Simulated assay, not measured.
Amino acid sequence: MAYKVTEECVNCGACEGECPVGAISDAGSARKIDADKCISCGACAGTCPTSAIVEA
């Protein structure tokens, strides 16, 4: 199950560097997770300071 970014995202970028497959990108006012690339490891969710990343 892929992860998704919720509206709590403050676009800090902490998650992007933690993604081992490069599935996270800047989408303007927030980050976006490419569900096709996401391997559901949860590394991004563990680093998010606002808990904006949840299982989809």
Score class of each variant (00 low, 15 high):
residue 2 A to D: 14
residue 5 V to S: 06
residue 5 V to A: 06
residue 6 T to K: 09
residue 6 T to S: 14
residue 6 T to Y: 10
residue 6 T to V: 06
residue 6 T to W: 11
residue 7 E to T: 14
residue 7 E to V: 07
residue 8 E to V: 12
residue 8 E to C: 06
residue 10 V to I: 15
residue 11 N to L: 08
residue 11 N to H: 14
residue 12 C to S: 13
residue 12 C to V: 14
residue 13 G to N: 10
residue 14 A to H: 06
residue 15 C to E: 12
residue 18 E to N: 05
residue 19 C to D: 06
residue 20 P to F: 13
residue 20 P to H: 10
residue 20 P to V: 07
residue 20 P to A: 08
residue 21 V to M: 04
residue 22 G to Y: 04
residue 22 G to E: 04
residue 23 A to H: 02
residue 23 A to Y: 01
residue 24 I to H: 02
residue 24 I to S: 01
residue 24 I to L: 03
residue 25 S to P: 00
residue 25 S to G: 04
residue 26 D to H: 04
residue 26 D to T: 03
residue 26 D to I: 06
residue 27 A to M: 03
residue 28 G to V: 13
residue 29 S to W: 15
residue 30 A to M: 09
residue 31 R to G: 11
residue 31 R to D: 09
residue 33 I to S: 03
residue 33 I to C: 03
residue 33 I to R: 06
residue 34 D to Y: 01
residue 34 D to N: 08
residue 35 A to V: 07
residue 35 A to Y: 01
residue 37 K to S: 04
residue 38 C to F: 05
residue 39 I to Y: 00
residue 39 I to S: 00
residue 40 S to D: 15
residue 41 C to H: 13
residue 41 C to Q: 10
residue 42 G to D: 08
residue 42 G to S: 11
residue 43 A to F: 15
residue 45 A to D: 12
residue 45 A to H: 08
residue 45 A to W: 08
residue 45 A to G: 05
residue 46 G to Q: 03
residue 46 G to P: 03
residue 46 G to L: 05
residue 47 T to M: 04
residue 47 T to E: 12
residue 48 C to P: 10
residue 48 C to G: 08
residue 49 P to Q: 13
residue 52 A to P: 10
residue 52 A to I: 11
residue 52 A to K: 07
residue 53 I to T: 03
residue 53 I to K: 00
residue 53 I to Q: 03
residue 54 V to H: 00
residue 55 E to K: 08
residue 56 A to L: 12
residue 56 A to N: 07
residue 56 A to P: 01
